[in-house]
């Protein structure tokens, strides 16, 4: 296996008419590394992710991303006219695409919904299909843009567990964009904070898995991240 990073960004700057969103940003993600990206709303997380996914052209700076990377968005973005298994198998160019799609759906606990139409799925089910669709491509880098944001708290917790398991099993590098500090600390090896167009914090989370959000070091990291995000404990309690 080769040891080069799956993602290397040098000096990336992105401007919109309204101003600079990313300011000569640097980022490297190693193989199999789980990285969470925090940042306030409007700080440019989605902009960065879209650039990494090749959906936004790079005009200033240098971006190298493994070609085997794929995205799961905040909304599932399934094709409503394809059955669930077909959504997953679409674009997979091996003769056993269907069997692999079924296996991937089994991994996200949707083996019983293979032939369902996407519009009949619940929000959590649809998002799991989107996850299976990413998984079947065996990506080296999985880009997740707030994939659980629109789910209820209970479903979100289950999905976090599922993503943790899938990562442990398949070991892709992951870049997870999220608003949720605890989610980042539960899942990631490294937590980044994007602020003012730069990565203000780059924290290593050396806690054993599965993690306990009441543990002293967890609590400590949480406080550090809150400060980096400009959230005081009082504000968090008020909210």
């Amino acid at each position: 296996m080769n040891d080069s990073p799956v993602l290397r960004v040098r000096n990336l700057t992105r401007r919109f008419a309204a101003g600079v969103v990313l300011k000569s940003l640097d980022l490297t993600i190693e193989r199999g590394e789980f990285v969470a990206l925090l940042g306030r709303s409007g700080s440019g997380k989605t902009t960065l992710l879209r650039t990494l996914a090749g959906l936004d052209e790079v005009s200033e700076g240098d971006v190298q991303v493994s070609p085997e990377s794929t995205v799961v968005y905040q909304e599932p973005r399934l094709f409503p006219w394809k059955r669930v298994w077909h959504n997953v198998a679409l674009g997979v160019r091996t003769p056993d695409a269907r069997r692999r799609a079924e296996a991937a759906l089994g991994e996200v606990e949707l083996a019983h919904r293979l032939n369902a139409w996407p519009l009949t799925l619940s929000g959590g089910e649809a998002q799991r299909v989107a996850l299976a669709r990413a998984l079947i491509r065996e990506p080296e880098l999985l880009l997740l843009d707030e994939p659980f944001a629109s789910l209820d708290a209970l479903t979100r917790t289950r999905m976090q567990g599922l993503v943790g398991d899938l990562w442990a099993r398949h070991r892709p590098a992951v870049l997870l964009v999220t608003h949720d500090i605890d989610e980042a600390l539960l899942l990631a090896d490294r937590v980044l904070v994007l602020s003012e167009g730069r990565l203000e914090a780059d924290l290593r989370v050396d806690l054993p898995r599965p993690r306990d959000d009441g543990e002293t070091r967890f609590v400590h990291l949480r406080r550090t991240l809150r400060t980096a995000l400009g959230v005081t404990d009082k504000q968090a309690i008020a909210a």
Binding site: A53, G54, L55, V71, R77, F79, L90, G91, R137
Partner: peptide
């Protein structure tokens, strides 16, 4: 357009 974007990230060809 979000579905077209998804098609792109899934690596579908123009024809597909």
């Amino acid at each position: 357009p979000k579905l077209l974007e998804a098609a792109r990230t899934l690596g579908l060809t123009h024809g597909e």
